[in-house]
């Protein structure tokens, strides 16, 4: 279990770091696009053409690590009410609901990619097909499913330690 956790942690971290590094690179191009438009009147069309889909890939990369760290906003009402075993049952059921939703998401995204392909959806100016970008997003969603599967197993076996949520403002 410990070895498995190390591997899953590494994978989730790798996606987070890769996704945000990609976003930083996109930011460099966005900056250049804005500057070139303002100074030299030559915007970089590519940034506006595929920027949203690159952003989608970057954003999706942030999801597995959130699942692994159970960093979603949760109201832990039963922690102080039920005995530990009862809390474990509830946490396992909650992890199962998350797993089902994530599988639904990854599955529907696969269909979404296929539908995009069948519709022949392309970008405005360059006519690049959009489907490959969405299939990339779907691939990352399946990674998130795998991570959540691990979390679920941790809950079932009681290997998880409780972590406090830390929402942001």
């Amino acid at each position: 279990m410990k070895a498995a956790r190390t591997i899953v942690t590494r994978v989730a971290n790798a996606f987070a770091v890769a996704g945000l590094s990609l976003l930083l690179i996109l930011a460099v191009f966005t900056l250049l696009d804005g500057l070139l438009r303002a100074v030299a009147n030559t915007p970089i069309d590519l940034v506006r053409e595929i920027g949203d889909m690159i952003a989608a890939i970057c954003g999706t990369c942030c999801l597995p690590i959130v699942l692994l760290h159970r960093n979603n906003i949760v109201l832990r009402i039963f922690d102080r009410i039920l005995p530990r075993s009862g809390v474990r049952v509830i946490d396992t059921a909650a992890a199962l609901v998350i797993e089902i939703v994530m599988i639904g998401m990854a599955w529907q995204f696969w269909r979404f990619g296929i539908k995009t392909m069948q519709a022949g959806d392309v970008t405005w100016l360059l006519n690049w097909p959009k489907a490959p970008f969405w299939f990339a997003v779907d691939g990352i969603l399946w990674v998130a499913v795998a991570v959540q599967t691990f979390v679920l197993i941790e809950e079932i076996t009681g290997a998880s330690r409780r972590r406090d949520p830390e929402p942001a403002a």
Binding site: L23, D52, A55, A56, T60, Q108, F109
Partner: peptide, 21 residues
């Protein structure tokens, strides 16, 4: 069930929201 893909695609693909990360 299609919402499970169409809505995430809008949220994740929003360049406005990319301002958050």
């Amino acid at each position: 069930l299609t919402f499970l893909a169409t809505e995430p695609s809008q949220v994740l693909g929003s360049t406005d929201l990319a301002a958050v990360p």
